Computed example of a mutant assay.
Amino acid sequence: MQVDTDRFLADLKRLREFGAFKTGVHRPTYSPVDMEARHWFLSRLREEGLEAEMDGIGNILGRSPKPGPHLLSGSHLESQNEAGWLDGALGCVAALHLAASGLPVDVAVFADEEGHYGSFIGSRSFTGLLEETEIDRLANKYHDKPLRDALREAGLEGRPRLRAEPGRYRGFLEMHIEQGRQLEKRDLGIGVVTGIVAIWQWRIVIEGQQNHAGTTTMDERRDAGMAAVRLLAAIDSEFPRHCAERTVWTAGRIALSPGAPSIIPGRAEILFQYRDVDIDVLRRLEEVLRRCVTESNRRERTVATLEALSLSTPAVSDPAFQDALEAAAEALAPGKSLRMPSGAGHDAQYLARVMPAAMLFVPSINGISHHWTEDTKDEDLALGMRVLAEGARRILAA
């Protein structure tokens, strides 16, 4: 088994040219430049001797002709808008070079992990979790183009959708940038991912009374905006008492209605989420959140209601795969690895539902991702490629 890290880096940098934006890329799902990148990747798979095809949702599968048990590896090629050059692309090119090294690895590129049209529609399609009725109703969140129209314009209409072949795979591996600073702060080169967090998303609506901001006295007000501020402050005070070490929470959107400076808000809407890899922590925080809402309703002149928008399930990495990746890291870079959870979602969390799965992280410079300044040192990328290949070899030999 030989991994050519120079060719690996060259392919990564060639892919960077598709949709180049400043030092990153702008490659939205099913856009002309995204499809150009997909067709280039198809040609590279075929150059390495894989049987490659693109299906009706835009997924690409390159099948290795080698006999025996196989691994599946990959990620996604599209990007967030005006974002980084490595997110997704790194995992695809790493998978290509696992196969090029001589290992029995199938290469997968999953469409729209970044969610321009839906939630992980490529990996969910491949694992049998995407229905035709959902495809019918999905549309682009930026410009409302129906998914069916985008598939037709991309030349994908009418093609069958690929599914994971039962019994073919030992499991799935995905290489990715960390998108955080834990590795960089510790001067480490490899993160062995213990699991992928679940995201629990909530809508909090607070109903008060819209009124004149100048003539309504403070003791007469039913101010939904101030009630929202106090509720979020209470949540932020209580969560640290019940969370885990790597739990995070965010009030990503606070909308006041009618939103005028001289009108007391009659309504507030908050989109709130928290993330953790432990289902017990997630459930505990739900209890805390509900108590905070109940206490708000007891204290305030407003009425708050809580609605669950999505309660996903954490994906735990396969323990034997973690051990293989850690052993590979210790063999190639002693003392330079860390076991850590992923705070972001990845295609691997859906593959983990149908086969053993694991991920490997490499450092992100300054922890930046989803921005055109996203970057990783060449030597860290090359080390990650070597560790991934050695880990894959150990998994296949087990």
Rank of each mutant, 00 (worst) to 15 (best):
Val3Leu: 11
Thr5Ile: 02
Arg7Gly: 11
Arg7Val: 12
Leu12Trp: 03
Lys13Asn: 15
Arg14Thr: 15
Arg14Gly: 01
Leu15Glu: 12
Arg16Pro: 10
Gly19Pro: 00
Ala20Asp: 00
Phe21Glu: 00
Lys22Arg: 15
Thr23Cys: 07
Thr23Gly: 05
Val25Leu: 02
Pro28Arg: 06
Pro32Ala: 09
Val33Tyr: 01
Met35Glu: 08
Glu36His: 09
Glu36Pro: 00
Glu48His: 15
Gly49Leu: 07
Ile60Tyr: 12
Leu61Val: 10
Gly62Leu: 02
His70Phe: 06
Glu82His: 12
Gly84Tyr: 11
Gly84Glu: 01
Trp85Gln: 14
Leu86His: 02
Leu86Phe: 05
Leu90Ser: 10
Ala94Ser: 11
Leu96Cys: 05
Leu96Asp: 08
Leu96Gln: 06
Leu98Ala: 02
Ala100His: 04
Asp106Val: 02
Ala108Glu: 04
Phe120Leu: 13
Ile121Leu: 15
Ile121Ser: 08
Ser123Glu: 12
Arg124Val: 06
Ser125Thr: 13
Ser125Ala: 11
Leu129Cys: 00
Ile135His: 00
Lys141Arg: 15
Asp144Asn: 15
Arg152Pro: 08
Leu156Asn: 03
Arg161Ser: 09
Gly167Thr: 04
Arg168His: 06
Met175Ser: 09
Ile177Glu: 01
Glu178Asp: 11
Gln179Thr: 01
Gln182Cys: 01
Lys185Asp: 13
Val193Phe: 09
Val193Gly: 01
Gly195Ala: 11
Val197Ser: 10
Val197Ala: 11
Val197Pro: 00
Gln201Ala: 13
Trp202Ile: 08
Val205Thr: 15
Glu207Asn: 15
Gly208Cys: 12
Gly214Val: 11
Gly214Met: 04
Ala224Asn: 08
Ala224Gln: 04
Val229Thr: 15
Arg230Ala: 09
Ile235Phe: 02
Ser237Glu: 14
Glu238Met: 07
Phe239Asp: 03
His242Pro: 07
Leu256Glu: 03
Pro258Arg: 02
Ala260Tyr: 11
Gly266Arg: 02
Arg267Tyr: 07
Asp278Ser: 14
Ile279Ala: 14
Asp280Asn: 13
Arg283Gly: 13
Val288Leu: 06
Glu295Val: 04
Arg298His: 13
Glu300Gly: 05
Glu307Asn: 04
Ala308Thr: 07
Ser310Tyr: 12
Ser312Leu: 01
Ser317Met: 09
Asp318His: 12
Glu326Leu: 13
Ala328Asn: 11
Leu338Asp: 00
Leu338Arg: 03
Gly343Arg: 01
His346Pro: 14
Asp347Lys: 05
Ala348Tyr: 00
Arg353Cys: 02
Leu360Arg: 03
Phe361Thr: 09
Ser364Ile: 00
Ser369Val: 10
Trp372Val: 08
Asp375Ser: 14
Thr376Asp: 05
Glu379Thr: 13
Met385Gly: 11
Gly391Glu: 05
Arg393Met: 08
Arg393Pro: 01
